[in-house]
Every structure is written in C-alpha cells, then in structure tokens.
Write a protein that binds this DNA or RNA. Structure first.
Lengths: 316, 316
DNA sequence: CATAATGCATAAAATCTCCTTATGTATAGT
DNA sequence: ACTATACATAAGGAGATTTTATGCATTATG
C-alpha cells in the first residue's frame, strides 16, 4: 500500500535541479558537486523508471513526468521546512522549568517577573510537583534540583549551598525570655524534629543529640511548611535563612545565631541535558539565573554583615 | 534562507514512528531494526534541538513539539508519495513512439487501432518526424528504426527484414507490353534512380549497373514517396513489397518478379532503453508488436505462395 | 512474588550510500 | 578552429546508517 519512496536525498536534489533547470546550479545551491547531482538524478530516474530530465546540449529540461511532479515535490519540501520552523518556534517559545518547591517558592517566585520582562517572547511553565525529573521522560527544559550536582547526561550549575540554622518567631522567642545560647532552643518545640539538619546543627554547636531521631530524607522539600509553622509560632525550625529574607526582614522570623551549617557538596543546582546547552531558551535562562544568583549572593553577604554589625546574630 | 532540513532519512523514520507511537512498530513498517529507529530518532532530536518523543516505560509518546510537527511531516510524505503515484500514472498512460516513416505509414498506421483497443488505458503518440532518436534527449518510450539492430544502451528486437524488389503500376507496365524480364524495366523511368537498392537488385538478377549512380543513403525513408510516384504511373520503384500489400491487392501496384533482395543484417527494429524493458507500457507494446509481426510474417508467406501459384510472380 | 515478555537504548562492527576527484563528451560561442 | 560550458561516468573513500548483540526498566503472567 505504502508505495516505496525513492531515496529521499535524491528527491531533495531533484527539487533543486528542477527549480533551477540546471544540475550545476542545483549543485551550487546544495553545496555539492555537479557530479553528485548528476549521480543522484540517475539514481532517481532508475528508481522511478522514467526519465525526469531531457539532456539537451548544454542544459537539462524536465520531461513531461518531471514537470508534473516537480511542483509537488517542491511543495512537500516546503512543508517539511515549515514543520521545522514551527518546531523551532514552538519549542523556543515555551520554557518549562521543574524546580524543588523551596527554591521555586522562595527564590524564583519573586524573580521570574524580571525574567519574563527581559524575555517577553518566552512563555514560562514552572512546575514544582515532580521531585527529581528525568528529562527523557518528562517534558522539561531545565530543572532546579538539590543534591550533589552530578547527574548522568546533565549539565549542572551550582546555585546556592544548603546552609541551615534555626529560625524562630521573635514573639515565641520572647516567651521564654529570649534566646541567648543554643540550649535555649530546647525549651521550644522543634519543628521537623526528625530533620537530620537538627542533629548536624546541634553537633556543630556542641550540644548532645542523643534524643534526636533522624529521618532518612533531608527536609529540604518541606522547608516551606516548616517555615510557615515557625512563623506561626509553633516552634523553632531549621531552615536556609537565605530563602527567608522576607520573613526575617518583616520580623515574622528571626535568626538567633550566626552559626550556619552546610551540607558540603550539596546544594541547589540548575540542571539540563548536556546536549541542549546551546538551545537559545536554555541559554537565556541559564544566563539570567546565574546573574541573579550572583547578585543574590552579593546581597546575602551584605545582609549578614549588617546583622552581625547590629548584634542581631549571636556569634558562636 | 533555506533553513537546513534535518537528515531526510530520519524524517521518514520519524513519520512512521509518530504514526505508530512505537519505535518497534515503525521499524517493522520500514523494514529495519528497532535499533536503527532509535538511532535515527536520536539523530533527529539532536538536530532539531528538542525532544520529539518522551521515553515512557514501555512506550514512547510525542512531546508537544513532536505532536505539532508530526502531522505536517506526514502530510509532506503523503505529498511525495502522491507525486510518484502521479509520476507512474502519467508516465504509464502515454506511450510515445518514434518510428521511421515507412514503417509507421504502412505497418503501424493500420494496426495501431488494435493496440488501442487492447490497451484502452494507454494513449499513444506516434511521431515520424525524427530520424534516429536519442532516447536521452527526446521524450520517447520506444522507437522503430531501421539499421543493424545494435545500438548502445538499447534493447532491440528484429521486426522485418529490408526486402526490396521493383514495383510498378500495372497500366504503366502494360504500356510497354508487360514486364517479362528484368531488362524490360529499363524501358521505364526508374523512380529513385540513385537508390542503392536498384544497383543491388540489378546485380542480383545479372544486369549491368554501370550507369546507375548511387546515393549514399538508403532510400528507406523515402519509400512512401517513391511508392506514390510509382502508383501514379511515373515509373518503377524499388520497394519493400510487404509494406504495400494494400496497393498490390488493389492493383495500383504490381510486383513483376519474385526476386527479393535483402540488406543482410539490416532491417526494421523495435528499440528502447535497456533499463526500461520492464516498464509496463513498454512491455505491452513490445508484446503486442512482436505478436503482430509474427502474424504479419505468417500472412506474408501465404501471400507470396499464392502469388507464385497464380503465376503473378515471374520466378527468376 | 518470581519469571517471562515487551519496548527502548547503546556499543561495536559491518555495510552501504553518497560524495568527490578526475576525466570525457558534446555543444555553443568567439 | 578554439575555448568555455554543462552534463556523464568511473574510481575511490569518508561517513552515515544498519545490524547484531546486549542491557535495562517495566508490565504481564503463572
């Protein structure tokens, strides 16, 4: 039923040759030699079983059959071309981001606007529902992940480290007469008590951790919930303060100590398939994001310095 | 301007894979291995810069982009296919014959009708204006030529030999008291006096040929004119009697002697490009023509025998 | 729940296609 | 006649495509 097509390469050559009425001219357009065009046309004619060109003295001209199919072939190739213009267009117009919730909510949410303004030709889809996207299975362009930053087939750029320190609602802190040393924290409920970050942090400040049971998974995914709980005064949470500058500034959260712990080697990363590193929309996003991160880090330094200077942070 | 197309072979594969939603199924349709399909899709996606399929557990599905271009690609391929169906159709529907005038006028003219009836799906173009067609330069399917039967790149089938003998208008013959021996012919004007056939024939019957000047070219092309002249009583012509059975039967021409000369190895041939021997319309024509020739030869034998028997032919 | 079957990916090796180079032929223009 | 143009052809090689063989993940089955 599906009548077999002639070699497609010969069709492309035919299309050009028919359009120019000249093998030489066609070869120039296609960037190949005249001999190659001649060869391809021979192949094609043999395959079709009919002459498509008449070899006149110093030129070729289409036969009846050739004249009949030429416009159809040309149209078909124009369709193909248009398909790929479409493909580029459509695939360039939508940037799909999958990001871990915390990062999306605290970092991206307030900054995507600037990206949209800068690249108003790009629509953005930001999805936080999937934990660790496999780019070959899900249709995303880039991902923001937490982890070690080394994934198979993926290019990754370090964004920010997983720093953490206890944050607490100031009123809650006041209710126990303020927090002056780490052990004061134990007077309050610990939000996310099974988060391994707690153990790390307590160990780092020299407190016993025997009665802390750690869950397997890091609480990074849950930071947002824990932060809300802490803001609501339900206890102390162990969080990445950089993500909660707003709350810290507003005063719904405070950071008692300057002691930050860090998951060494772990952090937030931008990641995308290596092979697609030069796709324009990905390039645009990468450049924008890394610039934002740079600015973000610079600001963090300033803020932390200010907090130290103003005595808001108890240095341990 | 002409945005470069991805490898066309990969497009064909994509078209099938998209249609089936399965690499394995596509590979079956295309008669290649599943690995090849997988490879081609990888190539294509790299080239386009976007995933076209999502690799789900036990199946693949089109991405947004893939879904967008798939129907366009399919349409393009359908166009291509249709072009070649058209090509076959159109090239199969018209049979172009180039034939030497004599053969066309005397043999084909009265028989083409039977061919048309037998193959009423075929239109026929019969052209006698070109002497020795080069099939690479002129758009003909088959040719009927006279000559040795060995042409470069052409398949050829012997049709009938170049027999010749003098023919004359019976009334003209009567005007000199009838023709009883070859030398009687000399009493009449010889039409086409410079035709080399005259020399051959006179030599064959033992008459001196000193005063005959021969032209280079055989008169085969001119037989028709000479025949008309002879019929009109303007002289004796040297002709292929098989071509003039009508006139002989009607009595506008008569053949005085049974002595036929023959250009050995020369004759009328059916010829066409070797490569096209299996093209249906050519096959049809060949088979029809060879059958007609067979029948024609059988009839000739009968006619000649009858003429001998009835004493119309003087045996030399 | 273990096992088989299905569907795709990948690596290595074998082909095979297609292109180039080099040359030949025919023709048109000078 | 001579030169330039346009196409054809042959040989050789580079590269693309395909196959084979295998692995992996998932679904279906006993």
């Amino acid at each position: 039923m599906t009548s077999k097509l002639p070699p497609l390469s010969s069709l492309r050559v035919f299309e050009a040759a028919a359009r120019h009425g000249s093998f030489t001219r066609a070869s120039e357009e296609l960037g190949m030699t005249q001999a190659a065009v001649s060869y391809q046309m021979k192949i094609l004619e043999e395959r079709v079983g009919t002459a498509l060109f008449l070899r006149k003295p110093r030129q070729v001209s289409l036969t009846e059959t050739g004249r009949r199919i030429a416009p159809v072939i040309t149209e078909a190739f124009e369709l193909l071309r248009s398909a790929f213009v479409m493909a580029e267009d459509s695939s360039q117009r939508l940037l799909s981001i999958t990001a871990v919730t915390t990062f999306a909510a605290s970092f991206l949410a307030e900054r995507m606007g600037s990206f949209q303004i800068k690249h108003d030709d790009l629509a953005v889809r930001l999805d936080t529902s999937l934990p660790l996207v496999d780019f070959t299975r899900e249709e995303f362009d880039v991902g923001i992940r937490s982890g070690g930053g080394s994934w198979d087939g993926l290019e990754s750029h370090f964004l920010i480290p997983c720093d953490f320190t206890p944050l607490v609602n100031p009123e809650l802190a006041e209710s126990i007469g303020g927090i002056h040393q780490p052990s004061d924290l134990l007077k309050l409920p610990l939000v996310g008590i099974s988060d391994p970050w707690w153990r790390s942090w307590f160990e780092a400040v020299g407190l016993p951790t025997d009665d802390l049971k750690c869950r397997q998974k890091s609480g990074m995914m849950l930071q947002l919930l824990e932060a809300r709980a802490a803001e609501a005064g339900q206890g102390v949470a162990i969080l990445t303060p950089a993500f909660f500058r707003d709350s810290l500034k507003r005063g719904t959260l405070m950071q008692p100590f300057d002691k930050l712990c860090r998951d060494e080697g772990y952090g937030y990363w931008l990641a995308y398939p290596k092979a697609r590193r030069n796709v324009p929309k990905i390039k645009k996003f990468r450049e924008w994001l890394l610039a934002e991160i740079k600015e973000f880090n610079a600001r963090e330094e300033v803020i932390i310095q200010e907090m130290r200077d103003s005595g808001q942070l108890i240095s341990l």
